[in-house]
């Protein structure tokens, strides 16, 4: 398989996943704000921090109003991680590998982009926003399902899954990081609201039900952290995502180097005593996790996307 094709599939999957995650975030944040008393509400600012685009936001908007932040995250063409830009990137990547993708997948991606673009005004209006975001999430899920059900489960599909899982793992760490940082000061009378916030963390990852089933305890910080970072069964848990990437890498040629990185990332998260981490330690821990994801991406890109002449002699030898 051509490196370019592998890379396009990888980014296509990442961008679809990113768009879906952003849609979830906005929905959950809107929901959360309805429940919190005005004085302690974190408002919309955390979302720009979470998507790593706070500086860009600050340079383009005056205040962190709901209207501004939602527009920025959904439809701002100058924001490289807005839903619309992600979907357009997913579409451009898919377009160049159309002959590899099942036709329905391409059509759905095209459709999803056109829907997000044409109906953007609904997403910006408070009343229709929920339906708009829900459509985007369902559409994205449908694409994931179509890929699973109609595409050959060959190398190409492995790159799709690697892209999707790295993006998921990344988003899970961001949500945990920002949400716990913006969590409330340690005051006993605020405890009910703290639980609401941790519930919203679970909701942003569609993890609430699965958490309840699996942990069978009420929502508590330590349990939520353990579940989201170390669970191997919940598909959006950090460790689960790494497991998925590892499985895919086993199917690919020349995967020794990236496999070593996954193994070390996995060891790091498994051995951590997550429950004991206090706020600042948690933040540092998550920084480490993100660094690990970054290394993994770099290693995968170096191995598969950037074949250069230095490997020519090597591949000559191996084919001789």
């Amino acid at each position: 398989m051509l490196s370019r094709v592998a890379e396009s599939l990888y980014w296509m999957a990442r961008f679809i996943e990113r768009a879906e995650n952003s849609a979830r975030l906005i929905n959950v944040n809107a929901n959360l704000l309805l429940d919190l008393p005005r004085g302690i509400s974190p408002g919309w600012e955390p979302l720009t921090v979470l998507t790593g685009s706070d500086d860009l936001f600050a340079s383009r908007y005056e205040e962190y109003s709901e209207r501004n932040v939602v527009r920025f995250l959904l439809g701002d063409l100058n924001n490289p991680s807005s839903v619309l830009v992600c979907l357009s990137q997913a579409r451009e990547n898919a377009r160049t590998v159309r002959d590899i993708l099942p036709r329905e997948v391409w059509e759905q991606i095209n459709d999803l982009y056109l829907f997000a673009k044409d109906e953007l005004s609904k997403g910006l209006s408070k009343r229709n926003r929920y339906d708009y975001l829900k459509s985007i999430i369902l559409h994205a899920q449908q694409i994931t399902g179509l890929l699973a059900g109609t595409m050959n489960h060959d190398c190409g599909y492995d790159f799709v899954r690697i892209g999707r899982n790295l993006e998921r793992a990344d988003m899970t760490t961001r949500i945990v990081d920002v949400r716990s940082a913006s969590l409330l000061p340690d005051q006993p009378e605020l405890t009910p609201f703290e639980n609401i916030q941790w519930m919203s963390v679970l909701h942003s990852l569609s993890a609430y039900q699965m958490y309840r089933r699996h942990m069978q305890v009420r929502v508590r910080r330590t349990d939520v952290l353990t579940f989201l970072l170390q669970n191997t069964q919940f598909p959006r848990a950090f460790l689960h995502c790494l497991d998925a990437v590892e499985n895919c890498l086993h199917n690919l040629p020349r995967s020794d180097a990236p496999l070593r990185v996954v193994a070390s990332d996995k060891r790091f998260v498994k051995e951590a005593r997550v429950a004991a981490l206090q706020q600042s330690a948690l933040h540092e821990f998550i920084d480490e996790l993100q660094l690990g994801l970054g290394n993994l991406h770099t290693q995968i890109a170096n191995t598969y996307f950037l074949a250069d002449l230095s490997t020519a002699a090597e591949s000559q030898r191996s084919s001789a």
Binding site: R254, D308, L309
Partner: peptide, 17 residues
């Protein structure tokens, strides 16, 4: 890509072919 050996290679996930 054209190598120093003046051969043409394509970039694949297996390396240069």
């Amino acid at each position: 890509v054209v190598g120093d050996d003046d051969c043409v290679y394509m970039r694949t996930i297996e390396g240069l072919a």
